[in-house]
Amino acid sequence: MIATLLALLIVIALAVGIAVPLGLVLGSVPAVRHATRAVIEFLRPIPSVALIPLAVVVLGIGPETKITLAVYAAVWPLLFNTIYALDELDPLLVETARVFGADRLRVLFFVALPSALPFVITGVRLAATTGLVVLISVELLVGGSGGIGEFIMVARSGAGRMDLVLAGTVVAGVIGYLLNEAFERAQRRWVGWSSVTGEAS
């Protein structure tokens, strides 16, 4: 269980580190976005679990495999939410900032980022949920890296212990539930000023 949670934290950190800067670039420079649109459109439909066999031969069965795959899956919602956030950016705010002499970078950091925050947090929440799904899938299917998924699979294939399998599933559910709850709280607390709560925007 600890192994899964730890891996999840790493996944979230990596996904944020990749997707948010990328999203900011794609969201604020239309030319880049146009050029990469095709890549994104063709990569995204590939379900991350389809890459499991490939990842296993390339990366082995250590934690790297599950983390890589989970990051791949978690990046998408975060990326789209970040891009979308910049699309929704109120031009009036940017104009105002420009009028006060802010350059492009400053506008990005002091205007674009704060107003994108609610979307990004929604993205992080989705990334966390998606990441957890993939982590558990890989743990179930590949094993060798510990985690709750492996626990469940061992309980099943070993003695066919339904009680242990169910217990593991419930624990997984609790993790998922707490994760969602925590993010919703954070959202309400930190970006309560925003109408974008992830409910509907």
């Binding site: 969201g27 976005r33 649109r37 994104i40 459109e41 995204r44 919602p77 789209f80 939410n81 891009i83 979308y84 699309d87 979307f119 929604t122 993205g123 929440r125 989705l126 949920t129 969602n180 919703e184 709560t197 992830g198 409910e199 509907a200 925007s201």
Partner: peptide, 18 residues
């Protein structure tokens, strides 16, 4: 959504929210 055929974040967010 900017990427056309992909899911709009609003829609994803909706599904993620309770």
């Amino acid at each position: 959504a900017p990427t056309g055929t992909t899911t709009t974040p609003a829609a994803v967010a909706t599904a993620g929210a309770k």
